[in-house]
Design a protein around this nucleic acid. Structure first.
Lengths: 200, 200
DNA sequence: CCAAAAGTGTTGAAACTACACCCATGG
DNA sequence: CCATGGGTGTAGTTTCAACACTTTTGG
């Protein structure tokens, strides 16, 4: 996940989720996209409203209600040109103490991601356009936090008839090169809309 | 669903979802519970944040962001003493035109309810403490909008080992009386917390 | 005795789990 | 030639869907 180090009080020098204020003339979704682009330079990523946090004292200065969003972003795609003073990618296992109630927000986001991954094909947002089945499996294992059986995983994924094998292979070290795949865009969109039937 | 008829402009005399403003010294959840109690007199019901709606012109007067909640309430439990000038229960099939973007909010809530019903035991919030398996099945059919096979439904529900058959029966017309059941509270709470494993 | 809802089992198909070996390559 | 990850098939078990008749009661 992408965190920024706060430059101002309160919680000065603590890590926090990136965020900002909604403008009067933009929707919540637009505000989230704008902030994300300011932080990462990325557009056109998966972005979804997570939940709204409204505990009374969550900001010690005054009452603040935050509408949290979560985006799925490939770290490799972030070119480094960020808005914030200091921004850094963290893995789910090595999260530092966070400012405000951001730890709670993060936990909620992870729960949601794990839940969604099981019945929606959102994992693919995190992969490059061409990928190997092993990369896809590693992604699922990272998010779900458990190991998956290689043969069963492949059977399941391929049974959805969503992946197109490419003519290219991915060479990576002293072993047999891996078949590259991409999504069938039409089928992918249909599944994403309907939401249904993924489950690994 | 419970709708109220608006007494003031804008959308005067249109039906709308019940709602109100969050106070500075209360959380969002507290505000939702307070409003619900003012409308229906009910406390201790299932209540969950749905989503936050923030389109720019959703209220023609000024910019308003609404944090929508949905509650599961037995209409029979509402004693009639409501806050609003006119309140009425509607079925999902006979919804009138709604004020603001409330039709969108309602559609979102129904989607969520249908989704949740499949993997969380929330349907039970809508039943009396003692109920028959047929009542439970009717509830699932109403929410999911499809007919279910009686034998398969019973097998599935009973397999969760969540229901306790009572000594009483439910007499209701010229036919065999139905066995009444209640939930095993401990198992029910555990399932509700964990969320997992329901699926009909 | 009749109408109406309650209650109950089986079978074939499909999906899931567990599991072990050969393949192609770079060094 | 060897170490490394890529790739493949099967069998036993479990779960799912489809389907029809008997039971108990009130009128």
């Amino acid at each position: 996940m992408l965190l920024i180090r706060r430059g101002l009080e309160p919680f000065k020098n603590k890590w926090a989720l990136p965020g900002g204020f909604v403008r009067v003339e933009e929707t919540l979704d637009e505000a989230a996209r704008r902030e994300l682009e300011e932080e990462t330079g990325l557009r056109e990523v998966f972005l979804e409203q997570l939940q709204t946090f409204g505990a009374v004292k969550r900001d010690p200065r005054e009452r603040v209600v935050s509408v949290a969003y979560f985006a799925l972003v490939k770290p490799s795609a972030v070119t480094g040109a960020t808005d914030a003073a200091e921004a850094k990618w963290f893995s789910t296992s090595g999260v530092p103490a966070l400012a405000f109630d951001h730890a709670e927000i993060l936990a909620t986001a992870l729960d949601r991601l794990r839940g969604k991954l099981r019945y929606q094909p959102i994992g693919f947002e995190l992969l490059p356009p061409k990928f190997t089945l092993t990369q896809l499996q590693r992604l699922y294992e990272a998010v779900l936090g458990e190991e998956l059986d290689k043969r069963n995983f492949r059977k399941k994924v391929l049974s959805h008839d969503l992946l197109v094998p490419l003519k290219e292979t991915h060479r990576d070290g002293p072993h047999r090169p891996a078949q590259l795949h991409r999504f069938d865009p039409a089928k992918y969109e249909r599944l994403k809309k309907k939401g249904f039937l993924f489950e690994i």
